[in-house]
Design a protein around this nucleic acid. Structure first.
Length: 278
DNA sequence: ATATCTGCCTGCTCGC
DNA sequence: TGCGAGCAGGCAGATA
């Protein structure tokens, strides 16, 4: 499940692969993937556009074009973007043919095509003039300088929902998903079931520090490689090797040997150490 | 306003 | 081996 570090890795990888290349056509094989405008208009508008800028906001990939428009892609759970050769593919053409999970194919002017592949079809693609119509409701970027403990305090104070659910709320904080929420709460020593409003300012500072540390480490490791995540270059990230609690239910905590607890919060699997996290 | 639930999807695992 | 049930989960939209 691509979260902030995985999406950041994606954007960094896409830039040298796509910069300056022009989209000759877009073949939409599963129209529901295109969130806006409708699939036919999308294909019409994107024809002839050139990739000009590359950015990330939360878990969204923002590909600025040489027009007033931005191509926005959200990978959700199982979305992937891969660049494939076409004319240069030669004898391996059969191997490079889009499979049944490839829902959008962008033909480029470089004898290549950019494919959006998504087994579970949760991913979405937009083409918009104003990015705010898509990402406008997102909360602050946790790695920007403007994100200080007071920002996090503002998101948590007065809240009765558990802190794990609040960390997953993209309108409060952008980019944190299930992996980095569980890992950050472990590093901060905070029980994920605690009501957001029950955290002391000292605990909020600790959580703020943990979030930034874990997200930076995730980017440094080029993300986590789980079953469905595949970056455009094929190079796999290694942050899963640093997991302290995520998907380690029943296994001993690396710090204290207490078996890691697995429970469900906000309908999502949640992992924590009952001894280390209070 | 906030909190919680449902639907979207497919592949995989599990039990019979 | 076959098959259905349950599960994984980000986010929009609905409901409480």
């Amino acid at each position: 499940m691509p979260e902030l570090p995985e999406v950041e890795t994606y954007v960094r990888a896409l830039k040298p692969l796509l910069q300056g290349k022009t989209i000759l056509s877009a073949n939409v094989r599963w129209p529901r993937i295109i969130a806006a405008p409708d699939a036919a208009r999308f294909a019409d508008l994107i024809r002839g556009r050139r990739f000009a800028s590359f950015a990330r906001r939360g878990k969204y990939i923002l590909l600025g074009l040489d027009s007033e428009e931005t191509l926005i892609i959200h990978l959700r759970m199982t979305g992937q973007l891969r660049l494939h050769g076409t004319a240069r593919a030669g004898p391996d053409l059969a191997e490079t043919r889009p499979d049944k999970h490839t829902h959008v194919v962008f033909e480029l002017d470089s004898d290549e095509e950019l494919r959006f592949r998504d087994t579970r079809k949760f991913g979405r693609i937009w083409l918009v003039e104003n990015t705010e119509t898509v990402v406008g409701k997102l909360g602050p970027e946790p790695l920007e300088a403007a994100f200080v403990p007071q920002t996090l305090a503002q998101a948590l104070t007065g809240r009765k929902a558990n802190v794990k659910s609040l960390l997953l709320n993209q309108t409060l904080l952008a980019g944190v998903g299930n992996i980095y929420a569980d890992e950050s709460l472990f590093h901060a020593g905070i029980d994920p079931r605690r009501p957001g409003g029950s955290l002391s300012f000292q605990e909020i500072e600790s959580l703020h520090r943990a979030l930034r540390k874990v997200l930076r480490a995730g980017i440094e490791a080029q993300g986590s490689s789980l079953q469905d995540y595949a970056p455009p270059t094929g190079a796999k990230g290694g942050f899963q090797e640093q997991f302290q609690v995520f998907r380690r239910g029943g296994e001993p905590c690396f710090r204290c040997n207490t078996p890691v607890t697995r429970t469900v919060l906000a309908q999502r699997s949640t992992h924590y150490c009952s001894a280390c996290q209070k």
